[in-house]
């Protein structure tokens, strides 16, 4: 690691966080009037926007329809201005397609799709600023947007990335830490039932360390859950008061 000290001797990271500390999370539900559900989230400098349409009639070819549950259709995109170097294609490249697939798998596990046979749920997420943990920010934003749309889910889906540097698990990696190239693990968790919706790891990690890293990641997911839960409850409280029947 060429000169860059990712974890200081005192246990602080580059941006001054402790190893198990998250970045500041700010979120808002119901940012668009046109969509069925929408949400915006900031995790440190990573900013994501999620929009949900549906459940609605299948668009495009009818053959996609499933007779016993809803189709979950996702699209992940990164704004052209989201990265340091300007991107040419906002979506459709390999990385985005893979991310789209992951999001689809995650939310098929969480949404109660069997309640909506022969319909379709669209989830569109866009990264407005990329500073590490893009997948996680997208999952968290999409969770809020789905809740805003009133689509039934088993539980929240909270995601957090974890790295492993100098024998210490670091949670919620920022771009610099991601780029350093250590092992990285992305976990999407249903926090109440502690079920794993998605677990992805790139590069190798010794078996002995896996449990430690996984524990740190699930702890971080529950921390994310606490923040999101606060946002949802405040939103519900506010709207209920306004409706005030």
């Amino acid at each position: 690691m060429a000169g860059l000290e990712l974890l200081s001797d005192q246990g602080y990271r580059l941006d001054g966080r402790k190893a198990v500390e998250l970045r500041k999370i700010q979120a808002r539900m119901g940012v668009f009037a046109q969509a069925d559900g929408s949400a915006y989230i900031e995790q440190g400098n990573t900013k994501a926007l999620a929009v949900v349409y549906g459940p609605h009639e299948i668009r495009g070819s009818r053959s996609k329809a499933l007779h016993d549950r809803a189709v979950v259709n996702c699209q992940y995109s990164m704004a052209t201005f989201s990265t340091g170097e300007r991107k040419r294609r906002p979506h459709g490249d390999r990385k985005s397609s893979e991310m789209t697939l992951h999001l689809k798998q995650t939310f098929e596990a969480a949404i109660l799709t069997q309640l909506y046979p022969r319909s379709q749920i669209d989830i569109y997420v866009q990264i407005l600023q990329a500073d590490g943990g893009n997948y996680c920010a997208c999952v968290n934003a999409a969770t809020l947007a789905i809740m805003d749309a009133g689509i039934p889910m088993r539980d929240y889906v909270c995601a957090c990335s974890t790295g492993f540097i100098e024998d210490t698990p670091l949670v919620d990696l920022c771009y610099v830490e991601e780029a350093a190239g250590g092992p990285q693990l992305a976990l999407a968790l249903l926090p109440k039932s502690e079920q794993i919706a998605l677990l992805e790891m790139n590069s190798r990690l010794h078996e002995d360390h896996l449990e430690k890293v996984l524990d740190a990641a699930s702890k971080a997911c529950r921390d994310v859950y606490a923040v999101l839960d606060r946002v949802v409850r405040d939103h519900v409280q506010e709207v209920c008061t306004l409706l005030g029947e």
Partner: peptide, 21 residues
């Protein structure tokens, strides 16, 4: 399974979401 208010009618429990289709 949704965020909203709990409504009870006798033995039936529903949760009404704030916004749905």
């Amino acid at each position: 399974s949704v965020a909203g208010t709990v409504e009870r009618v006798n033995k039936l429990i529903c949760v009404r979401a704030l916004k749905t289709r």
